[in-house]
Amino acid sequence: MKNIMKTLGLATVLFLSFAFNTVEDEKKEIKVESSKVIWKGYKVTGSHQGTINLKSGVLTFEDDKLVGGEFVMDMTSINTTDLEGNWKDKLDGHLKSDDFFGVATYPEATLVFTNVEVSGKNAYKVVGDLTIKGKTNPVEFTISIYGSKATANLKIDRSKYDVRYGSSSFFDNLQDKVIYDEFDLITDLEF
């Protein structure tokens, strides 16, 4: 009987120690001042690029492996970097208008990782929910992590977020005025 009681006592102690010693995720805050998000948009007659500021971001790790992430972008900060003067001001204003991202109504965009899988050394395949203009759609991309830095390139189909201006998905006969639906986000993050 004593042995049974000792065994039950030991089993109880082991169970409780496992139950209360769960591995805790480590959240690493993104340094928004030193991180960069570059956008590139393409049209029939060329392209434009610029930046968008991050408001906040966090990458979540478990045992030094990426398991999650969450980001908030400040859409009011959309900035064109390949133009100057009046042309820059016009494009910045147009991108912020309801024709494109409607930043007065939708000042933020968010990305929340929903699935993360190791895809190689320092690389992860990520599926996430991207919300722009109040519309949420899944996106897939690869993120690479080296020390306290991470990089990722995302291709975004703006037509899924009701960004219609100059899109041949919504309008006919645009000819050389077509702005392609897909644009790139190139991220260089520090945490």
Results as ranks from 00 to 15, higher is better:
residue 164 R to A: 08
residue 23 V to P: 03
residue 87 W to M: 09
residue 30 I to L: 12
residue 101 F to S: 07
residue 98 D to K: 13
residue 104 A to N: 11
residue 146 Y to H: 10
residue 45 T to R: 06
residue 70 E to C: 05
residue 67 V to P: 14
residue 188 D to P: 00
residue 172 D to N: 12
residue 26 E to F: 00
residue 25 D to E: 10
residue 2 K to P: 13
residue 79 N to C: 01
residue 187 T to G: 14
residue 89 D to R: 04
residue 163 V to N: 05
residue 134 G to I: 13
residue 130 L to T: 04
residue 65 K to V: 03
residue 77 S to T: 11
residue 74 D to R: 03
residue 151 T to W: 01
residue 175 Q to S: 07
residue 162 D to I: 00
residue 114 T to N: 05
residue 22 T to C: 03
residue 85 G to W: 00
residue 80 T to Y: 00
residue 125 K to S: 15
residue 55 K to R: 12
residue 142 T to G: 10
residue 8 L to D: 05
residue 63 D to I: 04
residue 20 F to H: 04
residue 69 G to V: 02
residue 169 S to Y: 01
residue 130 L to P: 14
residue 64 D to Q: 11
residue 63 D to F: 05
residue 90 K to F: 11
residue 137 N to C: 12
residue 6 K to S: 06
residue 77 S to Q: 10
residue 159 S to L: 04
residue 138 P to A: 12
residue 162 D to E: 13
residue 37 V to A: 14
residue 72 V to D: 13
residue 133 K to N: 13
residue 171 F to V: 10
residue 64 D to A: 10
residue 83 L to H: 06
residue 98 D to E: 15
residue 57 G to C: 07
residue 21 N to D: 06
residue 139 V to P: 12
residue 50 G to Y: 00
residue 98 D to F: 03
residue 64 D to L: 03
residue 107 P to W: 04
residue 72 V to A: 09
residue 75 M to E: 03
residue 35 S to T: 08
residue 154 L to I: 15
residue 138 P to Y: 02
residue 153 N to D: 13
residue 119 S to E: 05
